[in-house]
């Protein structure tokens, strides 16, 4: 099952197993979305269309770099921190 929650203002992505492999279910602006994924944080961000320069990423509650690997059942939290103004 997908585990989707909000932690503070972080947007939470939960990786789950499925018949077709690893999927990420994400919520962006309260709209759920799932994508097939396995790889680094940078690759995940690329798949989501997010530049690593504008976000902070937590993997299982710890802030990580873009080079860290994401595997299934990990919880990935992505927060956009560079905003205009």
């Amino acid at each position: 099952m997908y585990g989707v929650t909000y932690i503070n203002s972080f947007c939470v992505y939960s990786l789950v197993d499925s018949f077709y492999g690893d999927f990420v279910k994400c919520i962006i602006n309260e709209k759920p979305r799932s994508i097939k994924f396995k790889g680094t944080v940078k690759e995940l961000l690329g798949k989501l269309g997010l530049n690593e320069q504008i976000v902070l990423v937590k993997l299982n509650g710890t802030i990580v770099t873009e080079l860290d690997e994401v595997s299934d059942k990990d919880t990935v939290e992505i927060q956009k921190v560079i905003l205009g103004g």
Binding site: S9, Q53, I54, L56, I63, Q79, K80, V81, I82, L83, G84, G85
Partner: peptide, 28 residues
């Protein structure tokens, strides 16, 4: 800027990440 955001989060500053509603008007 990203390192400042990281420092703010690690220090526990209650930064409010909100975007200026006029941001789309600018060149920046």
């Amino acid at each position: 800027e990203k390192e400042l955001a990281l420092y703010a989060v690690l220090k526990g500053f209650k930064s409010v990440f909100v975007e200026c509603p006029y941001v789309g008007e600018g060149f920046r």
